[in-house]
Design a protein around this nucleic acid. Structure first.
Lengths: 252, 252
DNA sequence: AACTCGAATTGGTCATAACAATTTGGGTTA
DNA sequence: TAACCCAAATTGTTATGACCAATTCGAGTT
């Protein structure tokens, strides 16, 4: 609270990036909006884009770099720069950095994830399409097949939750779910090892699925809430095991 | 669904930005983590940072540009580059671009905002500190004082919601609330004009506040939910008026 | 003691060049 | 003819160096 009392009343800071960077972002924004480009398409080469905008290539690259780190673009040396395709799979860097900067804890992330996913499950119970339900069922089947393979199980776990988020029919919500989950999943991928009770996890997923399929929002919310509480416990356990494995090493 | 079936199973793409950009991000991340730098501090000059990392200035700038657009850093020509201070007031650019890219609608954003803020209100009812409650009360008083001034009213409206989000005791959640709200508020700042019933809005805010103060999570959630539904209606109305004002002009 | 102004600092931009990975197309070969 | 291979073109990646613009800060002046 050292700021002036007006500082935190601002809605959005007027101009944070350099002028040229803003220009590049606006230009890409424009290309997308005019529908000259759609996800998967290739941007004009840097040299040409720079000429179009009347700026130098290093400046252009600063702008593109922003868009890449925000997960809007993706570059492949020799091939080109592309508009990111597929579902809104946001790169989690922004949140990860903010997390570090402000000392977010995993507990807070789980709490947030719970709020988002419980909401998504409720909406999915009202709106999920047949295709989306089929995807959920399919991923559950894959999870069952992967009971002995933690890494594989985790992948289908993710896919299931993604399907639920998509089933909410709300892309904004789905994107936020993705952002928060990505950090947690990535962490978990490193710690997950031995199979604690995946059967229980599978059963909880099934319960969520059944509730959504039978269009019961309250039950879907309740089931998802319960599921995430358990997931958080499993996560905490893995963290603890991880620490115990590392501690002796560090001590020597 | 044109991708291979494995593509959307990836958790996080391994390396999206250029190598040097990654290096810069990692370096700043590191400086923050080692607590050599804290919010508000100034980064070493670009020329020196570039030398430290053994990369060129343009490359360094591409990295810094990413961090600036993610709201982690802020540059002032002649002064230096600083770590953003204050509450996690995330620049909304990332979401705004994704919104454009995937065609998010305002309705979806409101729905998402509702899920987030209802959750935040519930948590705030359990955890809000005396200071945070005082801030909420203060902002409501300011809103009352600004009943005739839409722009001013909106600012204190924002501040109130920010206080509730802070009261949740969950910075992750608060940041997401900020991201989604920023887009909606910014849009509203442009359309808000004549005072439709601000008294009703004020009363709804009071109801939320009372519920939080009396530590009643269910009532807080219910009140916030109701409030946002009304806000969405007001927003839609303003959008409609805005269109009606513009349409005749465009037609001539 | 207050003010002014210019030099130093620092971010913002540009031009050019060289490098690395991918793509593409022509030529070769089976 | 079809498959393969290699070299040239394309395109992103990085570096060097220079100059501009805004801010900062201190020496000099009033």
């Amino acid at each position: 609270m050292t700021n002036s009392s007006l500082a935190h009343l601002q809605i959005i800071q007027p101009l944070r990036s350099a002028q040229n960077t803003e220009q590049v972002v606006a230009r890409v924004y424009d290309l997308i909006k005019r529908e000259e480009l759609k996800p998967g398409d290739r941007l004009p080469p840097e040299r040409e884009l720079a000429k179009q905008l009347g700026i130098s290539r290093p400046s252009l690259r600063a702008g593109l770099s922003s868009l890449i780190s925000m997960g809007v673009l993706q570059s492949r040396q020799g091939a080109g720069t592309f508009i990111v395709d597929g579902p809104p799979t946001l790169d989690s860097e922004p949140l990860r950095l903010l997390a570090e900067l402000h000392g977010f804890s995993y507990d807070h992330m789980f709490e947030t994830r719970s709020i988002l996913e419980v909401g998504a499950a409720g909406l999915a119970a009202e709106r999920a399409t047949g295709d989306q339900l089929a995807t959920m069922a399919e991923e559950i089947a894959e999870m069952f097949a992967a009971l002995k393979d933690p890494q594989q199980f985790l992948l289908h776990d993710i896919a299931f939750h993604r399907a639920v988020a998509a089933g909410s029919g709300n892309p904004t919500l789905a994107t936020l779910v993705e952002m928060v989950s990505a950090i947690l999943y990535e962490r978990r991928r490193d710690t997950i090892e031995r199979a604690h009770d995946f059967n229980e996890s599978l059963e909880l997923h099934r319960r969520v699925y059944r509730a959504i399929r039978s269009h019961n929002p309250d039950e879907a919310r309740e089931a998802m809430s319960e599921h995430i509480v358990r997931a958080q416990r499993a996560f905490a356990l893995e963290e603890k095991q991880q620490q115990e494995r590392q501690q002796p090493k560090d001590r020597i």
